[in-house]
């Protein structure tokens, strides 16, 4: 495929748009965490009422799940023609 200039790309996948999406994305994340000051949560345990809990917990557990999956993949991954042979 020939390299396409920015104008030929769909507007959603132009590098400029993607930069903008990252910027707005981070802004939304920041606002969401700051909203913790505005809400009055009813925690069940305590830790779930702490500042930014759902933000860091979501990020950390997702990272952990990806790492576990990669680790398991080392042992259990096979070529996708494995059962055809």
């Amino acid at each position: 495929m020939h390299a396409r200039t920015e104008k030929e790309l769909h507007w959603l996948v132009r590098p400029a748009t993607i930069r903008l999406l990252w910027r707005y994305g981070f802004a939304i994340l920041a606002v969401l965490v700051l909203l913790d000051f505005a809400i009055s949560p009813h925690p069940y345990f305590g830790i779930d009422g702490s500042f930014g809990f759902f933000a860091w917990y979501g990020l950390a557990t997702c990272a952990a799940m990806v790492i576990v999956a990669k680790g398991l993949g080392l042992f259990l991954k096979r070529k996708d023609t494995y059962y055809d042979e």
């Binding site: 933000a55 997702c62 096979r78």
Partner: peptide, 25 residues
């Protein structure tokens, strides 16, 4: 918060999520 930060995790870890021609036993 939970969902968008897991979305952040997805895009930060995208290199580790690269698809391969594999199945998992």
């Amino acid at each position: 918060q939970l969902l968008l930060f897991s979305g952040l995790a997805f895009f930060l870890l995208l290199p580790a999520m690269k698809r391969t021609l594999t199945i998992t036993l």
